[in-house]
């Protein structure tokens, strides 16, 4: 890609085992097209997996579907080309400010070992925005090339 062309792909996946892997194929395709490095593509794939399984496990979305939008764009005069992924469900939502940050020491002492998804997403992506309410949740994740 000689210059940064905008490109957008939409996808709907059912709430079903391993459908998050189908979503990562789009990340690979768009990441390679925009000449993003392999390690960064893999980090976006991991973040997409986590956002999808969060929706699968916690949203109780009544339509049993998760919507994804994959967007290639560029910030003029900013940080340049990026790959942005939205993961949206129509579930009951949650309050992101009430999420507890997991700690490995506590996890090793307790029966609760889960709850790492948002921490992983925020650590692997450059920008993350979570919009959540009674009509669902949308996680917007951006990684710069």
């Amino acid at each position: 890609m000689s210059s940064v062309e905008r490109r957008e792909v939409h996808m709907t996946i059912p709430v079903a085992p391993e459908m998050e892997i189908a979503a990562t194929a789009q990340v690979s395709a768009l990441g390679e097209w925009m000449e993003m490095g392999r390690d960064k593509i893999d980090e976006v794939k991991m973040a997409v997996v986590e956002a999808c399984i969060n929706a699968f496990e916690h949203s109780a979305t009544p339509d049993r579907k998760v919507e994804l939008a994959f967007r290639v764009g560029a910030e003029e005069g900013g940080r340049g080309a990026y790959l942005e992924v939205d993961v949206t469900d129509a579930g009951h939502g949650f309050d992101p400010t009430r999420l507890k940050t997991p700690e490995i020491a506590a996890a090793l002492r307790s029966s609760r070992k889960r709850g790492w998804g948002i921490k992983i997403i925020e650590s692997l992506m450059d920008d993350v925005r979570i919009e959540s309410g009674e009509h669902g949740t949308r996680i917007v994740m951006r990684k710069y090339r």
């Binding site: 390690d39 893999d42 794939k45 991991m46 399984i53 496990e57 996890a107 070992k113 889960r114 790492w116």
Partner: peptide, 30 residues
């Protein structure tokens, strides 16, 4: 994914309880 890793944490916990050790090798950078 993090669910799989949480199961690895359970294995680690049991190993540490028994005075054991856990190592990983040949991980992808991510």
């Amino acid at each position: 994914n993090s669910i799989g890793i949480s199961i690895l944490i359970e294995i680690l916990e049991k190993l540490l309880d028994q005075g054991g050790k856990l190592a990983f090798c040949r991980l992808t950078p991510t």
